[in-house]
Design a protein around this nucleic acid. Sequence first.
DNA 1: ATTGCGGTTTCTGTATACACAATCGCAATC
DNA 2: GATTGCGATTGTGTATACAGAAACCGCAAT
Lengths: 232, 232
Amino acid sequence: MYTETAMLGLDVPLRASERAYRQLRGEILNGLLAPGAALLEVEQAERIGVSRTPLREAVARLIADGLVVGRRGRGFEVTDISVDSIFELYELRQALEVQAIRLAATRREPTVFIELRKAFVSAPELLDQGDAGVHRYYLMIDELEDAVDAAVENPFLVGALRAVRTHLARIRRLARRNPLRLRAAAAEHLLIIDAIIAGDPSLAAHATHIHLHQSLVSVLAAIDEDSAAVVE
Amino acid sequence: MYTETAMLGLDVPLRASERAYRQLRGEILNGLLAPGAALLEVEQAERIGVSRTPLREAVARLIADGLVVGRRGRGFEVTDISVDSIFELYELRQALEVQAIRLAATRREPTVFIELRKAFVSAPELLDQGDAGVHRYYLMIDELEDAVDAAVENPFLVGALRAVRTHLARIRRLARRNPLRLRAAAAEHLLIIDAIIAGDPSLAAHATHIHLHQSLVSVLAAIDEDSAAVVE
DNA sequence: ATTGCGGTTTCTGTATACACAATCGCAATC
DNA sequence: GATTGCGATTGTGTATACAGAAACCGCAAT
């Protein structure tokens, strides 16, 4: 026990508990299991095709992730997403990302970020290419995050950032994709990268703060529109 | 499943998994299970007097807490504490506590902190009373933390702070108690409380930053002395 | 229509058995 | 002495049985 299955690439069959964890996590993140959804241990074990023991292990991990919460009496439920919880998450996100960017701007290997900069300079063209371009753009964001994580050299901080990103993934799903916002965000990322390359922690921190603020405004606006659309 | 046993005060027997969790956690935090200690599932289940199933649940939670890590092959081990890990934890702690203090200074109910201030004004006399006084002082620190958590009104942030405090408890155990430092820390806390009462987020943040820096310096100095004492 | 109670059903926490994986100890070989 | 291979032992992941807890449902009383 207690090792997660080795990363992709090894010909090792997934343990049942890992399979259950990944399935449930994926379904929560992609919205199939909606916020607030109530789930029972026996029914989920049967649906996924594992026995209760590995299902319980998967659920325990999802509880630790904050994606589900135990209910009194029976079962567990997918955690809710409210406007309040989005604000709260962004408050935590800001504290962590500003610290991470400061450290990355201090400790970085510039070459990594210089390569990333080249890609981000082309982001507007990429975003004009439709879905495939947008998908590639999101991969670039992931690469930037990975580079910052590596530059930070702090497992505690990176762990906390990853926990935040898990929740963000769900929130992003709720927010409608806004082309103008994506273009603006690309420019904000470029500025952050430039600050990191320049080794200027203060500029990097402030640029990140502004980026997060604009991101939050955009998310909330999108959710507001959706709510209005649902009005009966 | 998956509710932790109700808080103290209810006449409900502890579940085996909860009992195992508390015992292992307590032993890790008090140093009985030392950093790096390798443990086996079967032996710990027998030692604690539960079957493997609740022991596994307890260990999974300790893994989520960052207090133990799974080993390849067999068993699990208590996470190590290194000088690097202390630095890293303080980097995360600073990001979180500075954000929390800013929010507390903005959202607080002054009366709570005015009461706390009265207690902290007397801290020097308390610290002169030997072990009982020091113990009471640490309780006051806990009360201040609780008050800040409540003022922050952000479960994500409070959860992250609590995770950091778990690790800090171990580090504090390693550091020798230093009476001069305790007195200085009491003054630093008083300044932080005053900034919260005044509703000045910037002063509160800076005072917190300085307090954490001095705390880190003190911890590292204590560990350095201990290392020197251990030299053979 | 609402409430309370008892019986039934379903669910959870735990123990334990089983199959497979990992480790250890010992003997043989170089 | 160091290395390798093999069998025995120990440990882990999982399935399942059992006991107790919790929820649900039906019926009677108000």
